[in-house]
Design a protein around this nucleic acid. Structure first.
Lengths: 224, 224
DNA sequence: GCTGACAAAATTGTCGACAAAGTTGAGGCG
DNA sequence: CGCCTCAACTTTGTCGACAATTTTGTCAGC
């Protein structure tokens, strides 16, 4: 047996653990955009050596979650509204690709699953359970990505999504969004179910395009 | 004056220099896919400390140019034909987005520049100067990206392109390619010039889609 | 001659210490 | 009173050494 399960007194988390924990923390909003991430502090907070903290920071910088400046350390990346729009635009076309592929490859079982989520979504909106609707939204997009099985596109969408968490939170507060997006989701599901790639791509793009519009309208209201 | 220009005897290249040099080397084919990159060797080759070599390797791994396995070191990433197709598919939609935006924002001066490249391309094909045509191809795509001014999309396309260098080389050997792609390029230019985003996106997608087809046809011929 | 285990070598992983750069605050000068 | 200078402190950058792991090589036993 290579190593003992008990950690050597003060736990030394590995680089991967540190990376995931830190990403989680940033995405959870425990560090605000623009906030400086001091290595020594992170060592204490995450119970890891500076070596591993540093590696984690480098990874997250590559993901676009933080920015590092030479001799100035790392800080949580501020994504401007303009960048948020750009990111959403790229997501639009890539998720469109994914939706189209999902329509080509969907199995009967998966089609049933799509219907189920669609039904639950409608019920959630009718019951005013927006939190639940938001969860289902994520599940729907994840399922579509599963069906498509497009690794390269997946990775990109996942990365882009990570950079937007803060804005997505703001978006969820826009009144009337669920009423707007529910029919869009239903159209996406219908297109994939009927195995029509062209329609699926168009439906997905229309959907995310409306997210972009919502973002742009927020631009005038919110900070900056 | 912060530091002397003369290096301290045995030059200690910085992490950024090492990263760029190593990327260059990999893209130039000096290291073959699957080849192991031993840190100690790279230290000598690139005249840098192991610390910087390591940082560079981590960066290139994030770019998808190499793969690192714990306790097993780094090796140049082998992209399978299937992955190459996936990557090209994503490039197709993202470059489509870029082309559409370019059509929205192109200035008169830029339009002239597009025409010039188009003309040079036609001449190069007619003269059988395929090497020159290939260079112009890159210039055209770069110019379109400039016109579009979409940072997020740019970064993604650049990353994806890096992962494909080896396959692109193979592609350039497919006989008859220039004759196929020249009219496609001309259609893209025409669409952007006439400020028709929809047509520009379609033209670009058609173009890259034909690259995907060429790749797929190579699948049966080449290795693997 | 082949297979397995064991030892030796090569390679990567981790850390702590020190160097270099940036930041802040106090004091003096105009 | 404000601004500049300089020094102390904070934070990041770099390295060399050692530990852990994987890979390679050898030799006995079948």
């Amino acid at each position: 047996m290579p190593h003992d399960e008990r950690r050597p007194a003060r736990a030394a988390n590995t680089a991967v653990q540190v990376r995931d924990a830190l990403r989680e923390a940033i995405l959870a909003g425990e560090y605000l955009p623009g906030e400086r991430l001091v290595e020594a502090q992170l060592c204490v907070r995450l119970e890891a050596s500076r070596f591993n903290v540093r590696a984690a920071l480098q990874d997250l910088a590559a993901e676009g979650l933080i920015e590092v400046q030479r001799n100035r350390g790392a800080q949580v990346r501020k994504v401007s509204m303009a960048e948020a729009v750009e990111i959403t635009e790229v997501r639009m076309v890539v998720e469109g690709l994914i939706a189209g592929r999902a329509a080509e490859r969907v199995t009967d079982d998966e089609a049933i699953e799509l219907d189920e989520i669609g039904l639950l979504m409608r019920r959630a909106v009718e019951a005013g359970e927006y939190r639940r609707y938001s969860d289902l939204n994520q599940r729907l997009h994840a399922l579509i990505r599963d069906i498509a099985g497009h690794q390269t596109a997946d990775r990109i969408v996942e990365t882009l999504r990570g950079q937007l968490v803060r804005h997505q939170y703001m978006l969820s507060l826009v009144p009337g969004r669920p009423q707007t997006s529910l029919p869009q989701h239903e159209r996406i599901i219908a297109a994939i179910r009927s195995r029509d790639p062209q329609a699926a791509e168009t439906a997905m793009r229309t959907h995310i395009s409306s997210v972009t519009e919502a973002l742009k309208s927020l631009k005038s209201l919110s900070y900056a």
